[in-house]
Structure formats: structure tokens, C-alpha cells
Computed example of a mutant assay.
Amino acid sequence: MTARPALARRALGEFLGTGLLVTVVVGSGIAAQRLSADTGLRLLENSIATAFGLAVLILLLGPVSGAHFNPVVSLMDAVLGRRDHTGLPGRDLAVYMAVQVLGAIAGAVLANAMFSVPTVISATQRATPGTLLGEVVATAGLVLLIAGLSRACATLPQIAAAVGAYIGSAYWFTSSTSFANPAVTIGRIFTDTFAGIAPASVLPYLAAQLVGAAIGIALTLLLFPTTSTTTVPAVALVPSDMEEAS
């Protein structure tokens, strides 16, 4: 059985993957804002680019880090894999979360730079009772989808396609346009463009995402109480409890 990549290489994969995901979200939002006057058309353009971009990044970096790109996915990995020691250990979880947040911020800065937009704090207020409920629903669905497919022995391409499709559709069926990712939420503070979010809205969004993650984990345990694979991680195809490659 092949040893999983060393933590440093996996951390780089998570940094790049989360960063490029935010670059896709923010960059396509800026392009849509410039190309289209209609808000609905802008959202369509933004959601299509995000869905495809996310699927590609999962396919590319899944074999390296598991392609979590999301602190709640990493947390789900650690929680669901705790009993049989297949989940992320505490040190790895902390590293994953840190590089995901740093990558998300870097991704927003990169997107701004490509479109010659200044990196400033967003003024877009998003937190309302309805959008927070939307974040709970979006995050719970995402966690359940990833954990359920992993436990059902889905392949990497199947998971990549399903996650991309879910996020693309959740842009539309949730009132929040489905951030469903604490790192991406923090990264989107740093662009005052179509995809931005004001700092005052971030803490409520993060709280809603944690609630959604807890619901998603609980539903996974009810619907998929056992796993038919050796791994619980989001898209990882190698167990988290194996020794690191030297």
C-alpha cells in the first residue's frame, strides 16, 4: 500500500487548491460584473465557472491532499475518521485549516491583481436570517454529499463531478449563494467586487457553516453508519493513518 504524501506536500496542495478556488470564484465574478448588466446572468456565469473550476481542482489535487479546500470538510474528515483512526490527526487538521485560510486570501488578492482591481475590504453585507439558513443548508448538504460518497466507495472522478454539480446548483437554490466554506468566506472579505462579503457578515456566516457541518456529520452517521472503504476523507484515496512518505 502506498504511503500518503508528506504533510508539507499535502499542505501545499491545500494552499494551492483553496487559493485557486477563490481565484476562480472572485475572478469569474469580476468578469461577469464587467461583461453583463443583469444580476441573474452574472450569477449564472459565476456559478458555471465555479462548478467547473472546483471539479478540475479536485481531480488535480485529490491524490495529493484529498482536495478538501474547506475547513469544515477537514473537520468532518477528522471527526468521522476518529474511531477507526483514518481521519486527519490534530496536527494535520490545524495545518490544513491554516493553509486553507491563507490560500483563500491569496486567491482573492491574485484575482484582484489579474483584473487590476484594488485589494480592499468588501462592503457587501450578506448576513440575514434567510441567508444564514441558506448557509446551514448548503454546508450540511456539502458535508453529507462528500462523506456519503466517500463511504459509498465513489471514485475520485465521481466525487469531483458530484461536488462541482452540487456547488453549481447550490448557488441557485440557497439564498446565500452557497459559500459553505469558512476559508472561502474569509478570503472573499478581500475583494469589493461581485463575490465579496463584508467583515460584519463573516462571523454569522461562519457560525451557520459550523451548524451545517454538524448537521451534515450527524446525517452521515445516520445514513452511512459504516464505510465500505478504508478512508473517510473528502476526496482522499489514501488512508490518513498511514505513515508519511520520507
Rank of each mutant, 00 (worst) to 15 (best):
Ala208Ser: 12
Pro225Lys: 04
Ser178Ile: 10
Gln100Gly: 07
Val137Pro: 02
Thr193Arg: 13
Ala3Lys: 15
Ile186Phe: 00
Ala160Gln: 09
Ala208Pro: 08
Val136Ile: 15
Gly19Arg: 12
Asp241Pro: 00
Ala6Asn: 15
Ala108Ser: 15
Met242Leu: 14
Leu223Tyr: 04
Arg82Phe: 15
Thr119Gln: 09
Ala67Gly: 06
Val56Pro: 01
Ile159Gln: 14
Val184Trp: 00
Asn181Arg: 03
Thr230Arg: 11
Ala98Gln: 08
Arg34Val: 04
Arg42Thr: 13
Thr124Val: 12
Thr227Val: 02
Leu21Pro: 01
Arg10Gly: 11
Ile146Ser: 01
Thr226Ile: 06
Thr226Val: 14
Leu110Lys: 01
Val22Met: 06
Ala78Met: 08
Glu135Cys: 02
Ser28Ala: 02
Ala213Leu: 10
Ala8Ser: 13
Ser228Leu: 03
Ile217Leu: 06
Arg151Gly: 13
Gly29Gln: 04
Met242Thr: 15
Leu210Ile: 13
Ser150Met: 12
Pro157Lys: 07
Ile105Tyr: 06
Thr139Gln: 01
Ser150Gly: 12
Ile167Trp: 12
Gly29His: 00
Arg82Met: 10
Leu102Asn: 05
Thr119His: 06
Leu156His: 12
Val99Gly: 01
Val238Gln: 11
Glu244Gln: 08
Ile186Glu: 03
His68Ser: 14
Ala123Leu: 13
Gln125Pro: 01
Ala78Asn: 09
Thr231Asp: 10
Gly19Thr: 11
Leu142Val: 12
Gln158Asn: 07
Val99Lys: 02
Tyr205Thr: 03
Val99Arg: 05
Ala140Asp: 11
Ala180Trp: 07
Pro5Tyr: 15
Gly40Ser: 13
Thr128His: 08
Ser178Leu: 10
Gly53Tyr: 06
Val22Ser: 05
Ala170Arg: 11
Leu221Gly: 04
Gly66Trp: 02
Ala140Asn: 08
Leu102Asp: 07
Arg83Trp: 09
Met76Ala: 12
Val117Thr: 13
Gly53Lys: 09
Leu223Pro: 10
Ala183Gly: 01
Leu12Lys: 07
Pro157Ile: 11
Phe15Tyr: 14
Thr139His: 01
Asp192Pro: 04
Leu210Ser: 03
Ser240Phe: 03
Phe52Trp: 13
Val22Thr: 10
Thr18Phe: 06
Thr231Ala: 10
Asp38Ala: 13
Pro5Phe: 15
Ser240Pro: 00
Leu237Ile: 14
Phe52Gln: 02
Phe173Tyr: 15
Ala147Phe: 12
Val95Phe: 07
Phe224Pro: 08
Ser65Arg: 02
Gly87Ile: 10
Ala37Met: 11
Arg91Phe: 06
Gly130Pro: 00
Asn46Cys: 05
Pro89Ala: 07
Ser122Pro: 02
Gly141Tyr: 11
Thr131Met: 01
Val73Cys: 07
Ala214Phe: 03
Leu12Asn: 05
Val202Met: 04
Pro225Tyr: 10
Gly130Trp: 11
Pro118Asn: 04
Tyr205Glu: 12
Ala165Gln: 05
Ala31Arg: 01
Met76Asp: 05
Leu80Met: 08
Tyr166Phe: 15
Gly13Leu: 12
Leu43Thr: 14
Pro63Ile: 08
